[in-house]
Amino acid sequence: MSSANLQTIQPLLPERIENSRSLLVVLMLMAFLAGLALLFSRGANRMSDHWRAQLSNTATVQILHSSPDTQQAQMQSTLQTLQSLLPEADIQPLSMDESRSLLKPWIGNTDLPEDIPVPGLITVTKSSGAINAARISAALEAEGLLVNVDDHSQYARNIQSTTRSLVGLGMGLLSILLAAGLAVSIFATRAGLSAQRDIISVLVQVGASNLFISKLFIGQAGRRAMIGAAIGIGLAALFWLGLSVLKVIGDVGWQSPQMVILDLIWLIGLWIIFALICALAAGMTARRLLARERRRA
């Protein structure tokens, strides 16, 4: 009965009502899955960017020589032309053995006969910026060299389109989960309005407006969603950390503290959006139902 006690304001709607715990668990699970979907999308995107960056600044020049006798000479003049064309790039001819080993996946792990024709390969790596394959082949062809320049753009395009589908999938899942959060909140508000009918009728009697009562539901749903989503998203982050450490998800996982921090910021954003969606859905549902009830009365 101390005046200190009187200073703490009790919430007008009870914190714990029927089913409020299962509701919290549902919200938690949805937030957990939404968090994973977000982390997965961001990880896939990051991995694709990384791979494509790596691919775009390397190219493989394949020398299409007619006979093993001229191969050495062709290799030399190709190297010279490349060096003058791209003075800042790292240009490495692959040894015969290395080239040979690249063929193994296609012809099996048997020792290749010495006389099988193996193309001469040169890798070109720029420290920054993409490599223009067309320019290289034009320059080499002008020198009379028959080459095939592969700047991996086909790969890069494949990676990009695959990643786009993956990210789209993740975002689709995320949207579905947020929509489910909305639906759960609407459902919970409907149930809450009838479960708390007595309280609401007292509030209406003492002159509370629909807006005032709706705000109570916004607060109730918002608090519930914030708690549920904080736990769910927190668990998603821990789960992701575990997967990353155990390398279950390979390059999609976290590889640097920077990634972790950026993703955590995104997760916090997701947390706020999740809670906002639930709170607003509750407020709008409450307002609509209260107005309908008032019309009926």
Partner: peptide
Amino acid sequence: SPAEQQALKRRIGV
């Protein structure tokens, strides 16, 4: 209006 009704109720003790 509903809002006006609620405002009136705040002047009535029950």
